[in-house]
């Protein structure tokens, strides 16, 4: 029996009661007046209410409780805006990074040093920074020489695609080579929100636990790049490099791994070279699939 409208025809189970609940009529049982399956209690049977004789099902039954199968992602709206962002960035040949990490693992310092270390062939960099409050990070990045916009999220623990779209509309994207989005410091929620970035970059500093990739699998599984940061103080904090890298490799086998210290400059050369190669890649294929 159809669980939605109580009739004995068997439909697809999807979106009953909308336009065409039972598009292809099925054979009806014999001896039941055209209805098969268990009869409803007296008075509930179709046609016995006096208000609803049997019919060919071309209208909904809004007055009776019925189930509507939906299966729509709660983040579907964000995903749509992220897709628009991605198309907008790709059409301009713009490389866009989404930086994810716990608070204090060195996102802002990495951006500062990425901006200031470029030399004569410096790419034009724009930065969108997300924090719950203050413009401190944007001010630091502006002082380093990049255009920076701060999004203060209030209580929200992550950036969403429409926040990025709005911020990006205030940037002259056509005159940028690289757009860096510094997400809110949090390894849980930002992992669920696509912003339309080209590359998702997850930072893990040596002051954090070596097992962090195991504790926050979603963030690391979605990473295109993992940066092991603050390696200049690894020894001082007793960091177990081998274990940390093994855990990163386990949870993010797809990701490029760089070990660096923005403060001392160690490893920054490889990181900057990688960024340049990705910029070239994106510029050469402005409308192609994003690089992984």
């Amino acid at each position: 029996m159809c669980s939605n409208c109580g009739c004995s025809e068997v439909g697809s189970g999807i979106l009953h009661g909308v336009a065409s609940p039972h598009p292809s009529p099925l054979p009806r049982g014999e001896g039941t007046g055209g209805w098969i399956g268990s009869p409803l209690p007296l008075g509930e049977r179709l046609g016995e209410r006096g208000d609803h004789p049997p019919h060919d099902h071309d209208h909904p039954h809004p007055d009776r409780p019925h189930t509507v199968d939906i299966r729509e992602r709660l983040l579907s709206k964000n995903d749509r805006v992220a897709l628009q962002n991605r198309e907008s960035f790709q059409s301009r040949g713009l490389l866009v990074l989404n930086l994810l990490s716990s608070p204090g693992s060195g996102k802002t310092t990495l951006i500062e040093r990425t901006v200031s270390a470029q030399g004569n062939h410096a790419p034009r960099i724009g930065v969108i920074v997300g924090d719950l409050a203050t413009e401190n990070d944007a001010q630091r990045i502006r002082a380093a020489g990049a255009t920076a916009l701060q999004i203060t999220t209030g209580t929200a623990c992550h950036l969403e695609a429409d926040m990025v779209a709005q911020a990006a509309s205030h940037l002259d994207l056509g005159n940028l080579d690289l757009l860096v989005i510094e997400n809110v410091g949090n390894l849980v929620c930002p992992a669920a929100y696509d912003l339309g970035e080209t590359l998702r970059v997850v930072l893990l500093s040596v002051t954090e636990g070596e097992d962090k990739p195991l504790k926050y699998p979603t963030a690391f599984q979605s990473a295109d790049v993992v940066l092991l940061t603050k390696v200049d103080i690894a020894e001082a904090v007793g960091f177990d490099r081998e274990t940390a890298i093994a855990n990163i490799r386990r949870m993010a086998p797809q990701a490029r791994l760089f070990e660096l210290s923005a403060r001392s400059g160690e490893g920054m050369g490889d990181w900057l070279m990688y960024l340049r190669s990705q910029q070239v890649h994106v510029k050469q294929q402005p409308l192609a699939q994003v690089p992984q």
Binding site: D63, H66, T67, P217, Q221
Partner: peptide
């Protein structure tokens, strides 16, 4: 061996509604 090929576990969706 380790595998991060996840078949299920990332779902976050409105599955169905009961309405009248």
């Amino acid at each position: 061996t380790w595998s991060t090929s996840v078949l299920r576990g990332k779902e976050l969706e409105l599955a169905s509604l009961e309405v009248s």
